[in-house]
Design a protein around this nucleic acid. Structure first.
Ligand SMILES: [Zn+2]
Ligand SMILES: [Zn+2]
Ligand SMILES: [Zn+2]
Ligand SMILES: [Zn+2]
Lengths: 164, 164
DNA sequence: CCAATCCTGTTATGATATAACATATCACGG
DNA sequence: CCGTGATATGTTATATCATAACAGGATTGG
């Protein structure tokens, strides 16, 4: 299971004051949804808020538990649907390696996200990415890349002491 | 579910005659296990053979069904353990995006695999990869990369007609 | 041969995810 | 406004993926 108790990890791996950060992201999402004429409903908004507050990757069932606690539905589709919406809109990314979801660190720009996942503390940092060096292989073989998952696992700066 | 019926996809996206390819890989694995003094037992060998024959990514339960048919155990740990062994030894790679496993295309060399996954036909091709362009971000933040998952999704050359 | 280690197979359970359906809400033209 | 179609919510049930824990069997190295 993904930790449900370490909700205040540093952003990236640098500590940061975190203030305003949640509300700014919510406001940006509000605006983006208005622009795109999609409904930013209460569950969806709260789901994004949960991920922003956690500032970490959460499993769908972790999110679900919180939605349930807030009086939204308690069954898996409630969480999965809200998460799908947020992923589709680019406000949240799915971390394949962890079967988890994390709020986007810069939802205002078009980007190709990549992630660094600390295997010791579970912190996930979002970075900009290239195509993973697949360009040449793709050209040679004629494969048409639409999306690339890039997830690095290793040790974050804080976990490089003591841990093997 | 992962297709259990398209076992003879082209290698990479180029058709190839496939002959000798299974037995050569098995022989290489035999040798590597001997060198490393690890046991290349019947289930493990057969599991690798199944993936080599399929020449495609198979889910653990697909593999399990075949092992069962061959008289090996029928319960999940049988497949998961054999697959873990093969992944640890580098003969097989796990495709996170598909929750599936694929035989390594060049198990003789040390390499950093990347994959191209066709969203239409499910074919998976292995390519060489860089670090996904994470080098700079990792250096800046002090993250120590140990392993990188790179999985591109898109359309293979054969599926670029007709399909949207 | 014995004992330590490793491997196999089982039972049982946990964790992740979706299909299908009924109800409720929203968007929008009339 | 109000009706109507499109969207969204919540439920039940089930599918899919994965591991813990234990008992028994094979391998290995003395
Ligand atoms: Zn992002
Ligand atoms: Zn860490
Ligand atoms: Zn490989
Ligand atoms: Zn294809």
């Amino acid at each position: 299971m993904l930790s449900d108790t370490n909700g205040s990890q540093p952003k990236g791996f640098m500590s940061h004051d975190h203030s305003g950060c949640v509300s700014a992201a919510l406001a940006a999402a509000d605006k983006a949804c208005a622009d795109r004429k999609v409904q930013f409903t209460a569950v969806r908004r709260r789901t994004l808020e949960i991920l922003l507050e956690a500032h970490a990757a959460l499993g769908a069932y972790d999110v679900l538990a919180r939605l349930d606690a807030d009086g939204f539905g308690a069954k898996p589709p409630v969480a999965y649907r809200a998460l799908s919406f947020l992923v589709d809109q680019g406000f949240v990314h799915r971390i394949e390696r962890l079967n988890a979801f994390v709020a986007c660190a810069h939802p205002d720009t078009v980007h190709n996200p990549a992630f660094m996942i600390c295997r010791a503390c579970g912190t996930v940092a979002e970075a900009q990415a290239s195509d993973g060096g697949l360009g040449p292989s793709a050209e040679t073989s004629g494969f048409q890349i639409e999306q690339t998952v890039i997830e690095a696992e290793g040790l974050c700066p804080l976990c490089q002491d003591g841990t093997t």
